[in-house]
Each structure stands twice: as structure tokens, then as C-alpha cells.
């Protein structure tokens, strides 16, 4: 769970600049399986493989390409990507502060946390306090890799979170799916009965109450299996199974012979 920085840069609004680190706010699934080779339980690694050269390609030899025709690509480098809007690739510039309750959850995409960078602790603390008091969040754009994200900066717990937002043209208008009202008569009475049930079922939101059943079942399965079968062990390096040096074997065998025997 090491909170590794995904990106480092600066939040700015007007003349204020706050150094920050972007870190993960969610981890998808903590049951992590490792793929192993069925033959000897050697661990497998996901790697890029060049079919033409029949070998693994080290990270230094991988580049990004845009497909312009069949098997035809234009290579685009990191530096070139940064050059598209250099001012946004190290800066999260807040353009507007908005009432966070005005941002429809429909726009929310992926959440992250922002942690203060060196020297930015005080200004970071101030922004958190001010956002809490005003119920406001900051709308900004910033570039991460090949994408420019529209983001909302807001407070989660005592931290700043950054949620990437969908652009408005990515959101399907609701009218596409809910048919316009047809004459079907009033639903007053049914609505009232539902509202009564809803009020009766009111609770506080406590995410820990809704356990992930799938996870729980997998953990239970693993527990059962660990009880009845010894875990397999992966070899720790690629080694042949040859004999040790002859003289060492002889010396050790001699020692073993002297033993009274293992009970």
C-alpha cells in the first residue's frame, strides 16, 4: 500500500502556488493472485514481447505510437507529449471554484489524493480549511501522459482529493434513455407509500457494512485450501538441478554416515 507518487507538480490559483504529489486513493482489489508456471511454479511476469525478434523488450525500448494505417505508426515521445501543453503538465491551475454539490456525480471519473510537497504544507492546510468552510472545490485542467484531464479538487477526510471528470461531450444526455411522460394518470398514492417505506428504512451510510461477498468467498476458499494443502513453493532463481561438486558430496556423505541415523 505504499502511497507512491504518480505525478508531482504544483496547484496554483491566482498568485498562490502549492507543491503537491498525486497519489492513489483507491486500490482495485486487494486479493492479488500471481500467475505461475504450472510446471515448476516459477513466477510469471507480464512483459512486452516482440513477435518479430522473438524476445522480451526492455522498458527502455518501448515507445508510444499512433496508428495511421495498417501496421503503420507515428511515434510520439514523452517530450513531445509534454510539449502539447507544457504549462499544464506540471501545474494544476484552478480556473474556477465551484460549489461541490453542483458537480453532478455523473461527471466523476477516477479519484486520487493530493499530498503536500516539501514546503507546501501550510498553503495545503489552508486550501483544505477554506474549501471545508465554503463547501467549494476547484475546477482545473492538467495533463497526465497523453491526456488532459478536467479535474475537481475537493476535500475528502482532511486531505485534498483530485477527481478526474468526464468532459461534457462524453456524458450521454439523460433524455436519451428516459421516455417523456405519457398520459398514465397520477402516481401520488404509490409515491406516498414508497416514501413511507423509504423513511422507515433510513440509515447512515457506512460502507464497511456492505462486505464484498466475492472477496470474502475467495478469502474463505484460500483459508480452506491452506488448511488442507501445503503451499507450493516457487524456485527463487533459474538454476539447473545439477549435483554439487564431487568432493563436497563425498565429504558430506562421510559425515552423514557417522550419524547414528535420523529417527
Amino acid at each position: 500500500m505504499a502511497l507512491q507518487s504518480i505525478w508531482t507538480g504544483t496547484i496554483t490559483f491566482s498568485l498562490v502556488a502549492i507543491p503537491v504529489r498525486l497519489v492513489k486513493a483507491v486500490r482495485p482489489d486487494r486479493i492479488s493472485f500471481r500467475m505461475l508456471h504450472a510446471k515448476d511454479y516459477s513466477p510469471l511476469i507480464r512483459a512486452f514481447y516482440c513477435p518479430d525478434e522473438d524476445r522480451m523488450v526492455p522498458p527502455g525500448e518501448i515507445v508510444r505510437g499512433y496508428e495511421v494505417g495498417p501496421e503503420q505508426y507515428i511515434e510520439v515521445t514523452e517530450d513531445e507529449l509534454d510539449s502539447v501543453s507544457p504549462e499544464r503538465s506540471r501545474t494544476i491551475e484552478i480556473m474556477d471554484f465551484v460549489d461541490v454539490s453542483d458537480v453532478d456525480p455523473l461527471y466523476y471519473d477516477r479519484p486520487y489524493y493530493l499530498a503536500p510537497g516539501r514546503g507546501g504544507e501550510k498553503a495545503y492546510g489552508l486550501l483544505v480549511q477554506v474549501m471545508l468552510r465554503t463547501n467549494r472545490g476547484g475546477i482545473a485542467k492538467f495533463v497526465l501522459g497523453e491526456r488532459e484531464h478536467l479535474v475537481l479538487l475537493r476535500v475528502s477526510g482532511a486531505a485534498l482529493s483530485l477527481v478526474t471528470l468526464h468532459y461534457s461531450d462524453e456524458v450521454v444526455p439523460a433524455a436519451e434513455t428516459v421516455p417523456e411522460e405519457k398520459e398514465e394518470g397520477g402516481v401520488e398514492e404509490e409515491k406516498d407509500r414508497m416514501a413511507r417505506t423509504i423513511r422507515r428504512m433510513e440509515a447512515r451510510f457506512d460502507p464497511a457494512r456492505y462486505r464484498d461477498d466475492r472477496r470474502r468467498k475467495i478469502m474463505a476458499l484460500l483459508g480452506r485450501k491452506e488448511e488442507v494443502e501445503a503451499p507450493v513453493e516457487a524456485p527463487t532463481s533459474f538454476e539447473d538441478t545439477q549435483e554439487g561438486p564431487g568432493d563436497l558430496v563425498a565429504v558430506l556423505q562421510e559425515s552423514v554416515r557417522k550419524l547414528k541415523g535420523v529417527r
Binding site: 516459477s42 510469471l44 511476469i45 507480464r46 512483459a47 516482440c50 513477435p51 518501448i62 511515434e75 533459474f238
Partner: peptide
């Protein structure tokens, strides 16, 4: 974007390889 091999611009595929 796709990932390419820098030398020959062949599109790379992900495979599971034996770590050793």
C-alpha cells in the same frame, strides 16, 4: 496509442513470461 518497439516500430503484445 499503442506501444511499439523503438527499433522497428513493430506493435508489441503483452505476454506472460517466466520470470527467470
Amino acid at each position: 496509442f499503442h506501444l511499439l518497439h523503438s527499433r522497428d516500430h513493430v506493435r508489441l503484445r503483452q505476454h506472460m513470461l517466466c520470470a527467470y
